[in-house]
Simulated assay, not measured.
Amino acid sequence: MILGIGTDLANIERIERTLERFGDRFRNRVFTQTEQRKAERRRDTAGTYAKRWAAKEACSKALGTGLRMGIAWRDMHVTNMATGQPVMHVTGWAARRLAELTPEGHEAVIHVTLTDDHPWAQAFVVIEARPLRTPPDPAHPLA
């Protein structure tokens, strides 16, 4: 079952100007060290930051709150699998909100996709609740 959907469109040039103006103050307020390392080793540094900015906005919308109600920017962060697929992680208040949304007997799975086409970066987040798998009952005749 779908618990939430969020999307966001970020202007890469706006993020680039913000990075130039506020530098580490902006980076450290919004992005985790992992996100910063990823962005700083990319040729399109601003685009990488913009995609992660959009992902955080999209995730907050999927959680049903937007960036209010206690969610901090760094409560949501994006890493990448070895294949390059982005993965959204939540901690702090965002993780507590996710737990509130998740029905008993289910686990929450956050799906995220990122794209960019200069000057735009976009993210789309879907939060899914999957039933927990229960081990077969050995006493059951069909187990």
Rank of each mutant, 00 (worst) to 15 (best):
R41V: 09
G105L: 06
R52P: 05
R97V: 10
L19Q: 07
T7P: 02
T79P: 07
P131E: 13
E40F: 13
Y49M: 09
V125L: 04
E35P: 04
W53T: 07
H118M: 09
M88Q: 06
A108Q: 04
V30L: 08
A62V: 07
I71E: 04
A50E: 08
P135S: 14
G105N: 05
M76I: 15
R97P: 03
G6H: 00
G84M: 10
T48K: 12
G84I: 01
M76W: 06
E16D: 13
W73Y: 07
A54S: 09
R52W: 02
E128D: 14
A50P: 02
T113Y: 09
T7S: 08
D117P: 09
T48R: 13
E20F: 09
V90P: 06
L9N: 10
W120M: 07
I110A: 08
I71L: 10
N11Y: 08
I2D: 05
G70R: 12
M69P: 02
F124P: 08
D8H: 00
R96H: 14
D24T: 13
R43Q: 11
M81D: 15
V112H: 05
L98T: 08
D137T: 00
P131K: 10
Q122E: 13
D44Y: 13
R68C: 14
D8N: 03
L9S: 10
A123Y: 01
G66D: 04
P103Y: 05
F124S: 13
V112R: 00
A54F: 04
L114H: 00
R37F: 11
K61N: 06
I5E: 00
I127G: 03
P119S: 05
W73A: 00
